[in-house]
Write a protein that binds this DNA or RNA. Structure first.
Length: 574
DNA sequence: GCCGTTTTCGGCCCGACTGTTTTCAGTCG
């Protein structure tokens, strides 16, 4: 049984306990589910070697839940879960995924209307049966239908990189409101998560009611869920929900901290406050009635005895301890990238010529790029064979001669295809001539974990391969990652000095933050590339930098955050 | 049910808004 299946069952149990009004157990099961979700290894694997003791190493998993998981491995189920399922034969997770529907409502819907799943609920709502229930009305019924509609059309989340430009223009508009002293988008956008479910906007103002009025007049707004004097929740025309909160200027820092999250990070901060006998909320840090910090985020962290923690690190994944011990890394900066090592041109499936890409990269502030068109086994892209690659090298030489006074360099590269058995589709004597040889898998996504791991490691062992592009091949909202033993991959990368790419394209972001952190810890170098297929895609490098920062990477960890000479020297000597 | 520089019991984050309520439970972030 996979981690994914286990955490789904744990989440179900949490919801069942909540339906029954049991205290604390819901949070305990939720915490265990989160622990498994973020655990790097498969629980079944560690159970095989270390039993329930090993399972209890997972954060949030104690004796009780470890026992349940053991039964899941042995029998596929356990008693409490079976009892709940018998009592409530319903799709509780599907139902609570609807905006505004929680466990208590699910219980009522089941008991009164025999609602088992989302389509039952939709039918009941359309038939006007919801409004007849006690404590429900016509509005609740409409709200449920809208929630179902949204869930259907968007799956609830969007890739941040695709929405970021729009979010920034919304932020700018609010900043320009005359009554607004400061405004910033907080939440998962500020933490640069891969995908976002909503936009949390924070504004400081003396006249919150006026700000809300102005906000509701903005052209982006499709629907208003809730409006108050300090908090308004709307749906934007782009399908995202936006939440605007207005606070007094004195509370700006505390509020920004609170609304940036993550929830887990905030809880940990509040616990530190409690230990000191204080209270932390979105209005400030309080000692009794007296506010002792909150004007700036820096002030809040300082008062709590912490160094300032960058938003991308706020996940309660060790950053608080590091901040206490003054051991936070100095993260790579958003303007540190000097070159881009993966892009495609009209030689294969890109939209623009080599020269157009070079010019666009220059305007994006880059000093060098590598042209990495696909290779021959990707026939549908017009992938290059050895001859075509050699021709492209000549074309690149020509462009470099043309631009030699501009201190900008186009490197010769390729996105060489990794075959099923881990060999490459380009001969070694041609690979040797490239400045940057990236290798990537584009097929055979369903190989077993062992085969897939062996395949990628074999590609890394080719001394001509510099970088593995988009290691896990996942596409957000489209397909999951290939099965890999990531620890073995990182070991092999370390041994062969192979660079692992952080592909910055918004629905790839591959490798993910958790793996970035493993690379940082193991001393494996990475490259942040746009994977641009058009001159408009260089802007996505920012998403890759965000991903690197979420994985605690410093400038030293990223080879293309260095000048060309240094970067090439690294590739040559590796 | 989990957890521990207030350790093996007694805690477990905190506040805003909605709807349908004459005082608050439920949901969300």
């Amino acid at each position: 049984m996979t981690n994914r299946e286990i955490l789904k069952i744990l989440r179900e149990i949490a919801a069942f306990f909540e339906m029954e009004g049991v205290s604390f157990k819901p949070q305990a099961y939720e915490a265990a589910a989160l622990g498994i979700e973020t655990y790097a290894r498969e629980a079944e694997e560690i159970y095989k070697t270390g039993g329930t003791d090993a399972l209890m190493e997972i954060p949030g998993v104690g004796k009780g839940i470890a026992g349940h998981i053991e039964e899941l491995f042995k029998k596929g189920s356990f008693k409490e879960y079976r009892d709940f399922k018998r009592k409530y034969p319903i799709d509780v997770l599907g139902l609570v995924a609807i905006e505004g529907v929680g466990p208590k409502m699910v219980k009522l819907l089941w008991e009164k209307l025999r609602v088992r799943a989302v389509n039952d609920l939709e039918k009941a709502a359309r038939a006007g049966k919801i409004r007849a229930l006690e404590r429900f009305g016509e509005k609740s019924e409409q709200k449920i239908l809208k929630g179902i509609e949204f869930l259907k059309q968007s799956g609830g989340r969007q890739a941040l990189g695709f929405a970021l430009a729009e979010i920034r223009s919304l932020e700018k508009m609010i900043q320009l409101f005359p009554e607004v002293a400061r405004a910033l988008v907080a939440g998962s956008v500020r933490r640069r998560k891969e995908t976002i479910g909503d936009i949390d906007i924070l504004a400081a103002s003396k006249r919150p009611a006026r700000v809300m009025e102005q906000f509701l007049k903005l052209p982006f707004i499709a629907h208003v869920y809730a409006k108050g004097t300090t908090k308004t929740l709307v749906k934007l025309k782009n399908g995202l929900d936006a939440d605007l909160r207005v606070v007094p200027k004195e509370s700006w820092g505390a509020a920004l901290n609170y609304f940036t999250g993550s929830k887990e990070h905030n809880i940990a901060l509040r616990e530190i406050a409690i230990q000191k006998g204080w209270k932390l909320n979105e209005y400030g840090l309080f000692k009794g009635e007296k506010m002792i910090a909150g004007r700036t985020e820096e002030e809040v962290y300082e008062k709590l005895g912490l160094r300032y923690i960058e938003p991308e690190m706020r996940e309660n994944m060790g950053e608080i301890k590091a901040a206490q011990e003054n051991k936070l890394p100095r993260l790579i900066g958003y303007s540190d990238i000097q070159g881009d090592l993966q892009m495609q041109t009209d030689w294969t499936d890109g939209e623009n010529s080599i020269e157009e890409m070079a010019r666009a990269a220059m305007s994006a502030g880059l000093r060098y790029i590598a042209i990495t068109d696909h290779t021959k086994s990707l026939a549908m892209t017009g992938g290059a064979d050895e001859k075509k690659l050699l021709r492209q090298m000549e074309a690149i030489d020509k462009i470099n001669r043309k631009y030699k006074d501009l201190k900008f360099k186009v490197l010769k590269g390729a996105e060489v295809n990794i075959m099923k058995n881990g060999t490459l589709d380009i001969e070694d004597d041609v690979l040797k001539k490239l400045d940057v040889a990236g290798a990537a898998a584009h097929s055979h996504f369903t190989l077993s974990r062992a085969e897939q791991t062996k395949r990628i490691i074999r590609a890394m062992e080719n001394p001509n391969v510099d970088i593995i592009f988009h290691l896990t091949t996942r596409v957000i909202h489209k397909r999951g990652p290939i099965e890999l033993d990531i620890d073995e991959i990182i070991k092999a990368a370390r041994r062969t000095n192979t660079v692992l790419e952080i592909d910055a394209y918004p629905d790839r972001l591959d490798i993910k933050d958790e793996y970035v952190r493993k690379c940082v810890d193991a001393g494996v170098k990475m490259a942040i590339d746009s994977d641009a297929h058009s001159v408009n895609h260089f802007k996505y490098l920012e998403m890759g930098i965000g991903q690197a920062r979420r994985g605690w990477a410093t400038r030293g960890d990223i080879i293309n955050a260095h000048p060309l000479k240094e970067m090439l020297k690294f590739l040559k000597e590796r």
